[in-house]
Design a protein around this nucleic acid. Structure first.
Lengths: 223, 223
DNA sequence: CCTGCAATTACGGTTTCCCGTAATTTACTG
DNA sequence: CAGTAAATTACGGGAAACCGTAATTGCAGG
């Protein structure tokens, strides 16, 4: 198991509960392995690296309260970037209240994080398995998000898609959509094109009705 | 009756027909009282104000074709804001193809417009009475929208409502809902009951489709 | 100018939805 | 137990959505 883990989390109680989880996993807690500010966290990573005892894992939140001015790094995203810059092999686990799939997705894609665990009711257990999974050099996704991320990979919504879905969500009947598209000088405006597009989206995403599609798009903040 | 009225409308034919309506109402048309672009409209308002003969009423569309680049103001909403900034007492009548109640509602609420007339079959008459009503310093709403705007209609969603809406948002077809309700031993389970309920909700909230209903419920966090 | 390919649109049959009306069941009262 | 009112369900016709196929259009290469 990991020997050196750094926690970046500004809420003291959460910070403490993560420490507790680490203890349960048999990760030693002899030195101060936590930070309440990103700037403090990056300093510790830097120092540990220089001393030849680098951190193996960073557990960080995404949003930090800016209650002290003149902090250089104020978000988890920036902390991850800065940390990877000085120590590329550092594993990163994001532990955040943010439960929107798009945010988690971009973290994996853009920052190549190793695990994402949303703060939730049963998150301690989730956290443990995440850390164990990372230790095996694998990626980890909270189960409830996992299936969503898989789905989303398959379909990229175009502007055209979003326009017609927005029209639907505003109560425009499908057969009236061509008229609205013409008003906006949007290129494919035939009813068949609209139907084809909606049909493609739905079969791709395993969605069975327009109603479910609207719900999906609202959840994913596509509209 | 008003003596100076400005029309902002990019469709020439509609612009002309509004002028016709004004003539019918005995509003003089000796100067050029119309504009095809928002920027032009605001200039005229400004000029008239400086010359000590300000416009009393602005009749404007909401959407303008952006066929000429580098326009500062491109929507009716922005035109109204700009106009009110330099001449707060200017009356405003919105005349638009937009027939969704929410849009009209937000115009009254956010921009404090004086009348809203949707472009429709019998809109000339509607326009006349609207102008006459404004002249008496009252607000005007097109009759078909009036009843809707009233006070924010609150619909209390019952558990039954929420169950069927959730089923819909999960991709269950309407005709399959009775089966699911029976599975859960929920009392009214007939298809007709489901249809009646959905119909009641939609007419009460002025919602036109199931898609819009789902969007509404997601926004209001009902589901 | 022709040709082939892809995109778009038109069309027709089937399913589902919508909505009014009628029949049935349920619940309550005397 | 009968009677009645309300709730629920059944039914049917018309509108909209769905979906496969065919016709049309647009466009690049020859």
């Amino acid at each position: 198991m990991f020997q050196k883990v750094l926690i970046a989390e500004d809420h003291e109680t959460i910070n403490y509960s993560i420490q507790k989880t680490l203890e349960d996993l048999g990760i030693p807690n002899h030195s101060k392995n936590y930070a309440y500010y990103c700037d403090d966290a990056i300093k510790r990573i830097e120092k540990a690296l220089k001393e030849g005892e680098p951190y193996e894992l960073l557990i960080t939140d995404l949003s930090f309260e800016e209650d002290i001015p003149n902090q250089h790094i104020t978000t988890g995203q920036d902390l991850i970037k800065a940390a990877r810059k000085i120590q590329p092999n550092l594993k990163v686990l994001v532990f955040s209240i943010e439960n929107r799939i798009k945010v988690a997705q971009s973290l994996f894609k853009d920052l190549n994080i190793d695990a994402y665990v949303p703060k939730a009711r049963r998150d301690a257990k989730d956290l443990k398995t995440a850390i164990e999974t990372i230790y095996q050099a694998k990626k980890h996704l909270s189960p409830n998000l996992k299936k969503d991320i898989g789905e989303e990979k398959f379909y990229k919504f175009t502007n055209f898609d979003i326009i017609i879905i927005k029209l639907l969500s505003n109560g425009v009947l499908q057969k009236e959509i061509p008229y609205h598209l013409q008003q906006k000088n949007i290129k494919p405006s035939g009813l068949s094109s609209v139907e084809k597009r909606l049909s493609l989206i739905k079969t791709t995403l395993n969605i069975f009705s327009n109603e479910q599609l609207i719900a999906y798009c609202k959840d994913k903040e596509i509209i």
